[in-house]
Write a protein that binds this DNA or RNA. Sequence first.
RNA 1: GUCCCCGUAGCUUAACGGAUAAAGCGGCUCCCUUCUAAGGAGUAGACUGCAGGUUCAAGUCCUGCCGGGGACACCA
Length: 531
Amino acid sequence: MHTKIQSILKQALGASLPSGAAVTVPDEEFHGHYATNAAFVLAKERKQSPAEAARELAEQIQKNAPKGFFEKVEATPRGFVNFWLSPTAFQEELGRIIKEGERYGSSDELRDRKIQLEFISANPTGPLTLANGRGGFFGDALANVLVHCGAKVEREHYVNDAGNQILILGKSVLAAAGKISDEEKFYKGEYVKEWAAAHAKEIRDAAVPLELGKRAAADLLKEIRRAIEEKAQIHFDRWTSEDKDIHEKGLVEKTLALFKEKGLVYKAEGAVWLKTTQFGDDKDRVLITSDKYPTYFLADAGHFLETKERGFSDKILILGPDHYGYVKRISVAAELVGIGAFEAIVTQAIRLVENGVEVKMSKRKGKFVMFEELIDEVGADAARFFFLQVSPEAHMDFDMSLAKERSAKNPVYYAQYAYVRSRKILERANSESQIAKSALNRLTGENELRLIRALVRFPEMVAQAAATHRVHHLAQYAVSLAREFHGFYEKEKVVGVEKELEEARVLLVRGVVVVLENLLTILGVSRPDKM
RNA sequence: GUCCCCGUAGCUUAACGGAUAAAGCGGCUCCCUUCUAAGGAGUAGACUGCAGGUUCAAGUCCUGCCGGGGACACCA
């Protein structure tokens, strides 16, 4: 619907939309079902008043529009052009929803793109944090959106199972077992003590820190995977191992050689550096430490080279707030290894509060609310929606007791309830298969048309999410669509009204089911049969 | 100190540079003989942190200030 109006507008202009011009859905209905600000842009170009440009544009549009599509096209004195679409136009679009079913809202906009979407990438040195969860749900839903728009997407969880942190984990286990003295940098969470207690024999027999660290990391990774896949219902296509997929395959050396070839590498103070400052970074970055170890940064660049060599055109990396300072240098690495389009999305901090007072969280000290705990308390759907509703750059205050209290009132249930109600109507009504398509044009009541207007926004919302890489609008849309449906449900009956009307309304409700099903699927929220 | 993010209703958050700033929760009034009341109808509640600027149009862009958070390793 939205695309159709855009293309009519383009035809009227005889050109593509000028930048800054858009087709929108106004807040107030008296401004039309849709509206455009294109005349403001034209007015500037043509040195006219906005009102004049709007009048001319409205005329052009009316001339170009398919017959019967618009009910009214109006230029306002301020310079907007407002559109009212005919009931027929909406009825036809509803027909499309029913016909396309689960394909409704999908497109082939991104068919040429092969995108690697990396998210969570939790270190196997402790349980998942709330920040991991936030990025996890976000990444999962974003991947669904991109797939819906025709892209080939790999959901990747990168595991840092090499390097210093694994050694520290090993030492932390030894410290927890009382074998060596504790140090500030060691991991101190309960999970370390638990693991040490459960593996006392191994610690006695083979107390090589790095080996112990690897074993503990492998176990922690299993826990992480279980929480992600079973509890959070987040799906990954690939669990990439830094150790096995990057180091052992020589990608680190290869990347270093690539950087050298470009003349961007130098030695200083016993270490090997990359001239990232040439690309706007604050300072140059170390690739190989003076102890001859490759840094995390170099390994990551190697990981990016692997991504490039595996044929991805795009890489989207979702990071937690603590990695903000990392974005610049990793973007430089992405450019140097030749990744076509790279975007880092940093989810903002979640501040833990308890009774209005901030609780400091630290993975090392072991005091934090775990992601899994949240899911256990409020359920996967509520937890998911809780995060998906807000934009990734919004800072959030998080109070576990409040989250528990609110979980019962989570808007996700409002949306799911709309789904349950609409399904129930279809169950009770006469079979849809015998309803003629012509029944659609009996949907002329204001309540019915209102609901269709809400339904047809779905493709536009998906396209917007894909273009902006933001999914919170979809969650918001789910709530507003549910509101429209609940309003309709209250005012109009479907089953048991006069036969011809019932048939028409059954088609309308089918449309609701289709859109809610597609929408909830993209968000990753379950679709219950009853509540 | 430098850099980044945020500041919107009592609370949690929306709002492609567009029209009278929206929703949920909480408050107050009502509505279950009717497809599940996890619902609906109504009502109160905001000089969008402050001060300037750009624009036909600013919550949104620019500058400065105030407040909150985060990042500034040869850690990951």
